[in-house]
Simulated scan of single mutants.
Amino acid sequence: MVQHISWFSNVDYEIFLFFEEHDIGATAKVVAYNIGYDSNYVNRRLRALESAGLFSNDGGIYELTDFGREFIEGEVDEDELTDPDS
């Protein structure tokens, strides 16, 4: 599983766990349904993770980027991530 990141929300870890177990493209609604969170909240968090370069979004379908996969594998440190709120 991914390391603790200071600006992550709890749902972010659930999102990564979902995509780690299912390497697919999925809408925020599908992800939210499967992890038990509100779809609007999951969509906001996926957009933040997209801004950090961890996910791509093509017409509302989110997928892990290569950078996101490296992050899951523990090959990316927190200082390599861009906090979307800063």
Rank of each mutant, 00 (worst) to 15 (best):
Q3F: 07
A28N: 01
E80Y: 10
F16S: 01
V31C: 01
E14A: 12
V31E: 00
Y13M: 07
V11M: 11
F19D: 02
R45W: 11
R45A: 01
E20L: 02
T65F: 03
S86N: 10
L81D: 10
L54M: 05
A48D: 12
E21I: 09
G68C: 06
S51N: 13
D38L: 06
F19H: 07
H22E: 11
R45G: 03
Y33H: 11
E78C: 09
I61N: 10
R45N: 02
L54N: 03
M1Y: 08
G25M: 05
Y62Q: 00
I61S: 00
R69Q: 06
E20A: 14
L17Y: 09
D77C: 06
F67D: 03
D66H: 05
L17S: 14
L54R: 00
T82C: 12
F67Y: 07
H22L: 11
A28T: 04
A32F: 05
H22D: 05
Y41H: 14
H22T: 12
F67S: 04
D12Q: 14
N57D: 15
E21D: 13
E75T: 07
S56P: 04
G59L: 09
D23W: 09
H4G: 08
L17I: 12
Y33D: 15
D38R: 08
E20R: 13
L81K: 00
L81Y: 09
V76P: 00
E14I: 08
F18L: 13
Y33V: 07
I24T: 07
S6E: 14
E80K: 14
A28Y: 02
A32P: 06
R45V: 11
N34D: 09
N40H: 08
D66K: 15
L81A: 10
S9H: 13
K29L: 07
F16E: 04
S51K: 13
Y41Q: 13
E73M: 11
D79F: 10
G68K: 01
S39G: 05
E75L: 08
N57M: 02
N34L: 02
D66T: 14
T27S: 15
L54Q: 00
T65I: 08
V11C: 14
R45Q: 07
R47Y: 06
L49W: 09
N57G: 04
F18P: 04
I35P: 04
D83Q: 13
S51R: 10
E78G: 08
I35W: 01
D66M: 06
Y33M: 10
G25Y: 02
R44S: 08
E75D: 13
D85K: 12
E70L: 01
D66V: 06
M1G: 15
Y37F: 13
E75P: 07
L46K: 00
E78Q: 15
I15C: 03
E70C: 12
I15P: 00
F18M: 06
Y62A: 02
E73W: 10
F67M: 03
